[in-house]
Nucleic acid binder design. Structure first.
Lengths: 156, 156
DNA sequence: ACTGAAAAGCAGTAGGG
DNA sequence: CCCTACTGCTTTTCAGT
């Protein structure tokens, strides 16, 4: 499942993770390769699923979602029903991310809302499934990033 | 700080959040506008910081990071020193995201590693700052997404 | 604020080492 | 796996509404 990536592939991934819309001519310049060789590598990475897509990153505050919170959900007792929650994820765009985890809590979610009242509404909905723990996000010392080359490696 | 976004702006944001590299000619077709009017709106959204960037999304498993965990860090006692942690975030690419939160834990982090041993190494490093709680991610029912239009709104 | 058209730049393909 | 050259599309710019 793990593809074999050489130094050039990692250089391409680095660039595209920071600037996902640069022209391939410019990308080619940065990784010291011709445009067509670069394009071919990008297509290969896309086809292999190493690059799963390209996304515009949208500022939450400037789009009217100033309240960000981490909500953890713990299911009670035995016989947990997970389908209703999966359905809720589709209905509630306020839930930006949901991770199923080991440990005391089943799910860890990142939730963005327009106000505290709005957050309360979402948390109330989630509380129908189990007990929730909500923490507001004060700041984002590291907003979000993707994987980097594990260490300096020979060109393979 | 919140920009005034009309229905067309939201349509553009929706498209670019799902396909960040589509040609503006295609984007214009989808939002029923001319190419140059569309480009102008995109530039305005970029300049206003509504679109903060474009990123290629890279698959963690296929790049050799099969272990994903949520690590929470709690600082002990009074007089917390936050700078050393900020420095660690720059040195450790395994830490993909870091949120400072209210509540018992100061920070919530998402950490990707090549192995359990590697995770242990990162957690040990974090444990120098305070007590940590680590939960492995079993699956991602909702991998990650951005904000959507709060509700149906008039074209303004 | 949007349209449409011309000029410049980029992506895709073919042919070849 | 890489290169160059050619062709068609995309992006940019700008005059006009």
């Amino acid at each position: 499942m793990t593809e074999s990536l050489d130094a050039t592939d990692w250089a391409i991934l680095d660039e595209l993770q920071h600037e996902g819309r640069i022209p391939f001519t410019e990308l080619a310049r940065r990784v010291n390769l011709s445009t067509s060789a670069t394009t071919e590598r990008v297509r290969r990475l896309e086809a292999a699923g190493v690059i799963s897509g390209y996304r515009a990153e949208v500022d939450l505050e400037r789009t009217g979602y100033p309240v960000l919170a981490v909500v953890r959900l713990k299911y009670p007792g035995p016989g947990n029903r997970h389908e209703p929650l999966r359905r809720l994820l589709g209905e509630r765009p306020e839930i930006l991310e949901c991770l199923r985890t080991t440990g005391d809590d089943c799910y860890v979610m990142k939730v963005a809302t327009t106000s505290m009242a709005h957050l309360e509404e979402v948390v109330d909905k989630l509380a129908e499934f189990g007990s929730t723990t909500t923490n507001l996000v004060l700041s984002r010392p590291l907003p979000l990033r993707g994987p980097r080359v594990p260490r300096a490696r020979p060109s393979e």
